[in-house]
Design a protein around this nucleic acid. Structure first.
Lengths: 197, 197
DNA sequence: AACTGGTTATGATTGCGATCATGAGCGACG
DNA sequence: CGTCGCTCATGATCGCAATCATAACCAGTT
């Protein structure tokens, strides 16, 4: 199938306006109260967003991995509202904020792609939050499997839904016993649900 | 303070294109596989989004309350990917999908407002998900207080971060004892953090 | 084939939060 | 003022998932 118009808003930005970036583990991408300069897309590595309270307690707001963007909301804010620190060696591309906002107003295709991307993000995050609110490990595991499927390892899957690997493994075993989930092989499971879109 | 340009994208839509809706508790707003016709903003009440698996298990994907919108992602999809059922008597306004998409392409102010709204949504939901992944009730409560503050009752606050009212109350008591949180009065707490934006 | 490192599975124990239960604080109303 | 209804606080108990520990399993390497 041929994509007539890319889903990735970054593809609508001229390469000259894209600035590659790379930071080592522990290094900041930006800091709270800095003036926002760009929107970042992570291609490899992982970035944590921290907010620091008045008395120095650090609260992790989010973690951003490959394919995701950060600081979307800062496109319209006067300052960054949190610190962005690379958890591992991280690289990606940045789009200048002014270029992006200008583009948003002048290029309908870009605007549409950006809105689509953000809308999907919202949906995904809402699902995550809702799944995390399920108390029972069995039900939570099932819901996650039904919504997202299992892409990587069990360990990663478990972590992404806030369960220990053991609890997740046990939950999967129970679900298979109940016939609600299929075991495709060692460490590979799927749920007989309507396929996620 | 005078708002030069409204933050709410719905304010950029001519009133003639807004269609009020109301549904009773238990009634559907739309169903999976329906063709998407509109974007909905809930003004009062609560709507649950469900996905039903092949063997009839129902999974709640999200719940939408006053001020929030649903089915943003369906603006670009061929069908709805889930059922929307009113949990309580619910009312709000709907914008026709074609009108909205057309507007997105032709009205930069609207596009910007929509992107801003979605970006904020993403940020908020990411925060929620991250907070929900904190295991300790005390730390989770603190993080939530630092990020969002406590708007309504303790009970509602506790529910919004996946804790029982009792666990939350106890956590708050501990945090006060540790001096990390201030008690403003019975059932009213705040954290000495940089104020959320 | 033997070795190695990483992942998955499963058993045993423990700690934390849900739940149940109850009392105290506080606003609304007649 | 006294009653009612709701929220908050706190104590007691119990169940579930985290944690620790270990074995089975698998892929890649030599």
């Amino acid at each position: 199938m041929i994509a007539i118009m890319s889903d990735d808003p970054f593809d609508h930005i001229p390469a000259t306006a894209l600035r590659p970036f790379a930071v080592d583990a522990g290094q900041p991408l930006f800091r709270r109260d800095d003036r926002p300069t760009a929107l970042y897309r992570v291609d490899a590595g992982r970035v944590a967003l921290h907010r620091v309270t008045e008395d120095g307690q650090r609260v992790t707001i989010a973690q951003i991995g490959p394919g995701e963007t950060l600081a979307e909301a800062s496109l319209f804010a006067d300052t960054y509202h949190c610190d962005a620190i690379a958890l591992t060696e991280t690289r990606g591309v940045a789009v200048d904020r002014a270029v992006l906002r200008q583009r948003l107003r002048s290029d309908p295709d870009f605007a549409e792609a950006l809105v689509r991307r953000l809308a999907l993000q919202v949906r995904t995050e809402r699902q995550r939050a809702e799944i995390m609110s399920i108390r029972s490990a069995r039900d939570r595991t099932f819901a996650a499997l039904a919504c997202f499927g299992q892409s990587g390892t069990i360990t990663a899957f478990a972590a992404s839904i806030g369960l220990s690997q053991e609890a997740c493994s046990r939950a999967l075993a129970e679900l298979v016993a109940e016939g609600r989930v299929m075991r495709l092989g060692r460490g590979r499971y799927a749920c007989r649900s309507v396929p996620p879109r």
